[in-house]
């Protein structure tokens, strides 16, 4: 009886380990949105990542069927000059979070395969340094949006 239980426990644990290597169930994504620009112009993708595990992870990239290329970038402003640089990884600390937001870290989404209309959702597969990946639905927002629109949507819902 005890033996069987232990076996079951082991089975569950090893299943969890397998799941860990594939789907990033230790990372949660919220406030995922894309600022859609007209035509085929590159768009910015933003998301908040929460790491529930005891180990730090890092976002290393992303891909999407909707865009030919997705790159991780960082914008910074110093002395009135804005800089945009490519980055290899964005760390998400253990039990911590990392934010991709305007004027900071962002995903640069290049060459849409089809026009993306505000209000629709675009699925991105986020890739992490431990080999795991996480599918996340990003809401497409108009060019002049300032965030994912969740705050104003919650307001109008009242």
């Amino acid at each position: 009886m005890k033996h069987a239980r232990l076996l079951a426990l082991f089975a569950t644990l090893s299943l969890a380990a397998v799941a860990h290597a594939g789907a990033a169930d230790h990372v949660r994504a919220t406030h995922a949105w894309i600022r859609v620009l007209p035509g085929a112009l590159p768009a910015g993708g933003y998301v908040t990542l929460k790491n529930d595990s005891d180990q730090p992870v890092a976002l290393t990239g992303a891909s999407s069927k909707a865009y030919a290329q997705v790159m991780l970038h960082h914008s910074s402003t110093q002395g009135g000059v804005s800089r945009m640089t490519m980055v290899d990884a964005l760390p998400v600390p253990a039990h911590g979070e990392a934010t991709l937001a305007p004027a900071g870290y962002h995903l640069m989404l290049m060459q849409p395969n089809a026009p993306v209309t505000p209000g629709s959702t675009v699925r991105l597969l986020l890739q992490f340094s431990d080999g795991s990946s996480l599918p996340v639905d990003f809401i497409a927002r108009p060019a002049n949006a300032l965030d994912d629109g969740a705050a104003s949507a919650a307001h109008s819902g009242h």
Binding site: R35, A103, N144
Partner: peptide
């Protein structure tokens, strides 16, 4: 420039406000 996906549109969105 229009191929600037982050800071330029953010500035324009702020100017819209």
């Amino acid at each position: 420039y229009t191929h600037c996906p982050d800071v330029c549109p953010l500035t324009m969105a702020h100017l819209h406000v």
